[in-house]
Amino acid sequence: MNKNELIASVADQASITKAQASEAVDAVLGGITSALSQGDEVRLVGFGNFVVANRKATTARNPQTGATIQVPASKAPRFKPGKALKEAVNR
């Protein structure tokens, strides 16, 4: 499912227009993005948690040249599915 298909699904389930569903989906995704960029967690009970994980700096190797390169420390978004989502997927 891509974003347009998600918007169409939200519009059908909520009995709203696709334009309104698009605004709602964009607002939800924007809220999650904003919270994660500030270092906060987003907990959606039954669905899952969005968190920010810290990656350590490391040394890697370029596979073409064999040269070592330094990979700087960074932050990465992570998603941990909730129990209800896991159960729904495994039915």
Rank of each mutant, 00 (worst) to 15 (best):
E5L: 11
S9P: 09
S9Q: 12
A11F: 12
A11C: 12
D12L: 13
Q13W: 08
A14W: 14
I16Y: 00
K18G: 11
K18W: 09
A19W: 04
Q20W: 00
A21T: 01
A21R: 00
A21V: 06
A24V: 14
A24E: 13
V25E: 07
V25A: 07
D26G: 03
D26Q: 08
V28K: 01
V28N: 14
V28G: 07
L29C: 14
G30S: 01
S34P: 09
S34F: 04
A35D: 03
A35R: 09
L36Q: 10
L36D: 04
L36F: 04
L36H: 04
Q38T: 14
D40G: 07
E41S: 14
E41D: 15
V42P: 00
V42A: 05
R43Y: 11
L44Q: 09
G46W: 02
G48S: 10
G48L: 08
N49P: 00
N49K: 11
N49H: 08
F50Q: 00
A53S: 15
R55T: 11
A57T: 01
A57H: 00
T59W: 05
T59A: 06
T59I: 08
T59M: 09
Q64E: 04
T65P: 10
A67D: 10
T68W: 00
T68E: 13
I69P: 00
Q70A: 13
V71G: 06
V71A: 05
V71P: 05
P72M: 12
A73I: 01
S74T: 10
A76V: 15
P77I: 06
P77C: 06
K80R: 15
K80V: 13
K83S: 11
A84S: 12
